[in-house]
């Protein structure tokens, strides 16, 4: 092999490497960093509200699974994931005393707590690269029968992403302060919120969600959640 051929091969190799690096590896890396950054910032709510450590990631995990199962395109799956991470972020503006009250909340306090979906929406709106998630987050407490807040939307009027967020949000709330790694407890929490299917939650989305948790429980893959989030 002549020296010139050798140089040709080396040059072509390095050009190919450059292409791989710039077109495939880097974008993936940047996406991963982005996700990690949002996960970290979603934790600010968890240091404020007792017993919620790891809750944001749990929400994101199930939101992604549901969105995938329902056949949403990759871009939409990612939107749902980020929205699930940030849906409670507005709670940093809710008084500490209300967030961490041991006794049941009074009617007034409940009204204050309900502001969080609008507060989250306002915060997310102000970040240009996340603004598209704002409406999903605003409606993440709208009920299927129209009894939710803030706008009282009903059925299909509610964006699909918000219907997913509603289920994973309530589910995460039911798991608050519990052992998230225990598949048994995770399954019990599903049964705990199941009575609201068709009243609060879109029944079709709920069935998908139920199947996902069920599969996880019966496969006994307690490590599954860890693997995805590690």
């Amino acid at each position: 092999m002549s020296f010139t051929t050798f140089v040709y091969i080396v040059v072509m190799g390095s050009v190919a490497f450059l292409c791989y690096y710039a077109l495939l590896w880097l974008p993936r890396q940047i996406r991963r960093d982005y996700r990690q950054g949002l996960q970290a910032l979603a934790r600010t709510v968890e240091i404020r509200e007792h017993g919620t450590t790891g809750i944001a990631r749990l929400r994101a995990h199930y939101a992604v699974e549901i969105a995938r199962r329902m056949g949403l395109p990759a871009r939409a799956v990612q939107d749902v994931e980020f929205a699930a991470l940030l849906q409670e972020i507005g709670k940093v503006s809710i008084p500490y005393a209300i967030l961490n009250k041991e006794e049941p909340l009074t009617a007034d306090e409940q009204e204050v707590l309900k502001l969080h979906s609008v507060l989250s929406q306002r915060m997310v709106e102000q970040v240009p690269s996340l603004a598209r998630l704002a409406s999903f987050i605003r409606h993440h407490h709208e009920n299927w029968d129209g009894s939710g807040y803030p706008d009282g939307l009903q059925g299909e009027e509610i964006p699909l992403a918000s219907r997913i967020l509603h289920i994973v949000g309530d589910y995460a709330e039911a798991l608050r302060g519990k052992d998230l790694d225990n598949a048994e407890i995770r399954w019990q929490a599903v049964q705990q919120i199941e009575h609201s299917k068709g009243i609060h939650y879109d029944p079709r989305v709920f069935d998908v969600f139920r199947a996902i948790v069920q599969a996880e429980t019966f496969r006994q893959t307690n490590l599954f959640y860890h693997e995805r989030c590690a």
Partner: peptide
């Protein structure tokens, strides 16, 4: 690449500020 990294930094910064507001 540079645009994406800048975008990432801005997002983190903005959210970090908002959370503290």
């Amino acid at each position: 690449r540079i645009q994406q990294i800048r975008n990432y930094r801005e997002t983190i910064r903005a959210l970090g500020l908002l959370v503290q507001h």
